[in-house]
Design a protein around this nucleic acid. Structure first.
Lengths: 137, 137
DNA sequence: CTTGTCACTTGCAAAATGCAAGTGACTAAA
DNA sequence: TTTAGTCACTTGCATTTTGCAAGTGACAAG
């Protein structure tokens, strides 16, 4: 006879999905990740100009929700690259539905497809590459 | 050479869609409308218990965005029934994508389908029916 | 006249947003 | 060594949005 509610608002799949991605920014970072962006800087430079504190917050929440995973792409200083998990990639269907709806009912809107970083570089343009230049080592 | 931006954040269909329905409540009222709810009271009684001030605000915005339309279902006092426009009904695809995603990745969630009002009544249960009982003529 | 219903509105405290500037760890150039 | 620059965040703080609770207006019914 459990009396504890397992859900915040209801058991509705829509309501619970919105508790995770229901705001103006979260799905935009998922969109960018889906389009190949990987670093904090790339995500911050999207045309919508997400405030950096919000971006940091969303990345934390998305990781907590198992939608993205971060792995270090360099050490000293350690920097993380963000990538979608299967759960995150599955949000592609939701994004697609939004794209279709938006294109059909909001005049002038378009689908911003394709990659993000200029070239196919694995790291921010011409940035600290760290060959084996170390100090204390 | 127009310099005025036509969009708040970008021309992205997703971003612009989120500017309209990107929050925790809006799509839930669309869901309810899609499921047959029509009056303020019915919408307010959904399991998520949307605060009434938020509900009033969302109905205003949705109407302003052309997603719903309100028509009086009774006079004295005038009361409005809300219904989805084609633009609003098209959001069904987005809702469906959310249902699928939620059911697949958020354990325990379900799709709350079907109607809302107890019976198929056109007006709130046993409420002021106004036959031709008028005062001022 | 009192009670009840429905659809909102109002007040206000708490939480979320957004902007700008600051910080930490380094690399690279002067 | 000092100075400048990059990347990834964090911090402060003012503004906006939420959310809860209670109040209001227009009635019908007893």
């Amino acid at each position: 006879m459990s009396t504890a509610k397992p859900f915040t608002r209801s058991a509705c799949a829509v309501a619970n999905s919105l508790d995770i991605v229901g705001d103006k920014w979260t799905l935009l970072v998922v969109r960018d990740l889906l389009h190949g962006k990987r670093t904090y800087g790339e995500l911050a430079n999207s045309p919508e100009r997400i405030p950096t504190n919000i971006l940091a917050d969303r990345l934390r929440r998305l990781e907590g929700a198992g939608i993205i995973a971060s792995t270090p792409y360099q050490e000293r200083p350690v920097r993380y690259a963000y990538a979608l998990t299967p759960k995150g990639r599955a949000l592609g269907d939701v994004l697609l539905a939004f794209v279709r709806w938006g294109k059909q009912f909001i005049p002038g809107t378009v689908a911003l497809n394709q990659g993000s970083a200029g070239a196919g570089s694995a790291v921010p343009a011409g940035s600290p590459r760290r060959a084996r230049t170390r100090r204390g080592g």
